[in-house]
Design a protein around this nucleic acid. Structure first.
Lengths: 110, 110
DNA sequence: CTGATCTACAACCATTTGGTTGTAGGATAT
DNA sequence: ATATCCTACAACCAAATGGTTGTAGATCAG
């Protein structure tokens, strides 16, 4: 039973978000600790605006959330987004296994 | 222990490959049955060349393989590629869980 | 109040992406 | 031998991506 239907566009955004080294690194960071946008920006050899854009991509993909704290914007990992991506790959895995099982059945019939 | 180290570029290609609805659909198809490139092309409302490009993206990402059979090119799903993507997301999941566990520990100490 | 910090956003640029059409070559069928 | 089918690849185009700099609005510190 599929509880939580994801649109194609949502999945596009999800995987697109993972398809960049800097963004995957940001995901690792915010999964462990708290970072402001400028705190993240300090970690990479690119402009603040570039990092800001990466965070925006992750946010649109529901992989992080931002929360205003004073003049800072705290970036937090969003577990749901990660789970959705994982679930899709698990689904593919299941399809694969079904196929392997079916082939085994066919071989067993002979 | 990380058995099989994936370069950033490989991961970029892997997730980039998943970040398109048509390509995810192709992945589902070839996981179940056998398709030639033209067989796949017949399924979508776009040119043969466009589908050919999508297959090429999946191939560069090690998500499918092609095998020549007569004048056709048979596209097959490659389980390894899928596994690698799954493993990465599992790793993120593990990082997440560690954090949750650590927070629980801190709360328990008080 | 002033200055420094953090953020957002616009404008711009080069490259990549996702699509097209067209051309050409190898394999198959008649 | 000829026509058909399947594939590969080049050239082109519009839009998106990943980066830049610059401007401007909030918030905080002195």
């Amino acid at each position: 039973m599929v509880v939580d239907q994801l649109s194609d566009a949502e999945l596009d955004r999800l995987f697109q978000a993972f398809a960049d080294t800097t963004r995957r690194d940001i995901m690792r960071r915010v999964a462990v600790g708290e970072y402001s946008v400028s705190g993240l920006a300090a970690l990479y050899a690119m402009s603040f605006a570039a990092v800001q854009k990466h965070v925006a991509v992750l946010e649109r993909a529901s992989l992080v959330t931002k929360e205003k704290r004073g003049r800072e914007q705290i970036v937090r990992g969003n577990h749901d987004g990660l789970e959705k991506a994982r679930r899709l790959l698990d689904e593919y895995e299941a399809i694969w296994r079904q196929r392997v099982a079916r082939i085994a059945d066919i071989l067993a019939e002979e």
